[in-house]
Design a protein around this nucleic acid. Structure first.
Lengths: 157, 157
DNA sequence: TTAGGGCTTCCAACGGTCGGAAGGTCAAGC
DNA sequence: GCTTGACCTTCCGACCGTTGGAAGCCCTAA
């Protein structure tokens, strides 16, 4: 099987398969005389494993641990469970952060009239609630939409 | 004020201030004869605005829009609300994804004994539930923990 | 033999932030 | 005036995971 075949069968792009090989997550594939990578059904199976774990949000580092455990017939399921629990904790922490953001934003958005008038509690909060009056007086000349600077390698889309 | 002062007062690192200038999010600062950037209280104000918006998870692109609106005395609050609502939707979508991951993982972890034995529903699910038997028979030789490949620029920690 | 697709490697970009090197500048203390 | 140390400058790279593209070789069917 060539790399394109395993890619289709495993759902992992050829780019990523080569990358995983490069970082040592998967062993280097055998090569044909022409230098083509060749794969077996077992490799497809392993890449599917990787794909699923990635879909569950495991990092590549965690994935390496899981693969080692997967390959170890004498593993203790406690080790797997530990990795999973740790990942769950990370995910829940992330969720908490996002929740806090959305709650704060929703609260602000609810109090914004959302009409043609310029008054907006969202901007006022971002500017700093204490300084609302000052902002109205003399801070209206800011902005990124003005004269366009040089913009070397990156720019805002 | 030098860049270090604004950084301390705004909570935005000097690295990021230079970066924001480079991508055109903020205008290029004035320079002293020696080439040092100089800033005013208004710049501190603006950077605080940026800091708060970033803390709320707005992307730099969205930030550019918000800054433009902030600087526009004739803006309609509806525009700000639209950006906020869009961002809320993105955040909630992300939360949903993470929720789905944690739910799936929790379900698996609950059914894992977590003891010394190798049997583990977490790994079995990752390997593909249908092929559990096959895995036990002949797929135990996989793994990233084997012979360490060359590892050029990147490696797994 | 030619055309097309697949394969190879290498280089860069994305977003946002940080670390560090190499060198110039400024203030204080001697 | 000189040294010291904190600050500033630019430039380059790393992080993580993924994608895009270029340039060139290989394979197969027509």
């Amino acid at each position: 099987m060539n790399i394109g075949d395993v890619s289709r069968e495993s759902g992992v792009s050829t780019k990523m398969i080569r990358y995983y090989e490069e970082i040592g997550l998967i062993p280097a594939a055998h090569r044909t005389e022409a230098g083509y990578r060749t794969y077996s059904d077992k490799d497809v199976h392993q890449l599917r494993f990787i794909r699923r774990a990635r879909d569950l949000g495991f990092s590549v580092t965690q994935l390496a641990e899981l693969l080692t455990l997967w390959s170890d017939g004498h593993r203790a399921s406690a080790d797997v469970k530990r990795i999973a629990r740790q990942h769950i904790a990370e995910l829940e922490h992330k969720i908490q952060e996002l929740r806090a953001m959305t709650d704060a934003l929703k609260h602000l958005a609810e109090h914004c009239h959302g009409d043609h008038r310029p008054e907006c509690p969202i901007l006022e909060d971002l500017a700093g609630a204490v300084e609302v009056e000052a902002r109205h007086m003399d801070l209206t000349r800011f902005g990124a939409g003005g004269v366009d600077p040089v913009r070397r390698k990156k720019e805002i889309h």
